[in-house]
């Protein structure tokens, strides 16, 4: 049984990897490419910890086969900062103390980034429904929602 060769772009870099047909993108990110910033909380698409962007669209990387990444553009939490300059979402998660244990944080950041890309001015309700696919057990979501709203405001201000 030979492995499949996949060519893809991950966090702005061209990457090639070999994978089994049945391996998920999450398996390959974490165990083959050693990009462990993307987390596994359930493996069934219920917790959102493994959220990545696939050609700009929010997906659970545990529900996608690695082979499907051929020719696609993948963005993870590890590509959000530019050098040591944090993305406004990352900055506001820190300022608002929107993480406690931090295991869900990569997924929330990626999901929130996808939200703000299509809706730069979401209401609290829109943020809450968009992020309903991401579980956090520590924060009660209060500070996460505030951080996303604050980041959105800053990003709108920067563009204006």
């Amino acid at each position: 049984m030979s492995k499949r060769h996949v060519t893809t772009t991950i966090d702005g870099e061209g990457r090639e990897f070999l994978c089994e047909d049945w391996q998920t993108l999450l398996d390959v990110l974490r165990d083959v490419l050693m990009k462990t910033g993307t987390k596994e909380g359930c493996g069934t698409g219920d917790c959102g910890a493994c959220s990545v962007l696939l050609d700009g669209r929010l997906v659970c990387s545990c529900l996608m086969l690695a082979a499907e990444a051929e020719g696609r553009v993948i963005e993870t939490v590890e590509g959000m900062a530019e050098g040591d300059r944090l993305h406004p979402l990352q900055q506001h998660f820190l300022q608002e103390a929107a993480l406690q244990c931090g295991i869900c944080t990569p997924g929330f950041l990626v999901a929130a980034r996808a939200l703000l890309a299509q809706n730069p001015d979401p209401s609290e309700r829109e943020v809450r429904f968009w992020l309903a696919g991401n579980l956090c057990r520590c924060t009660g979501y209060d500070k996460i929602v505030r951080a996303v709203l604050a980041a959105a405001a800053e990003m709108r201000g920067a563009e204006a």
Binding site: C42, D46, F129, L131, A132, G140, Y141
Partner: peptide, 16 residues
């Protein structure tokens, strides 16, 4: 699993 063991998600809660 988290689908059937239903923990609160962001849209279930108000600000606390």
């Amino acid at each position: 699993g988290f689908l059937d063991y239903r923990m609160p998600v962001a849209s279930d809660l108000p600000m606390i």
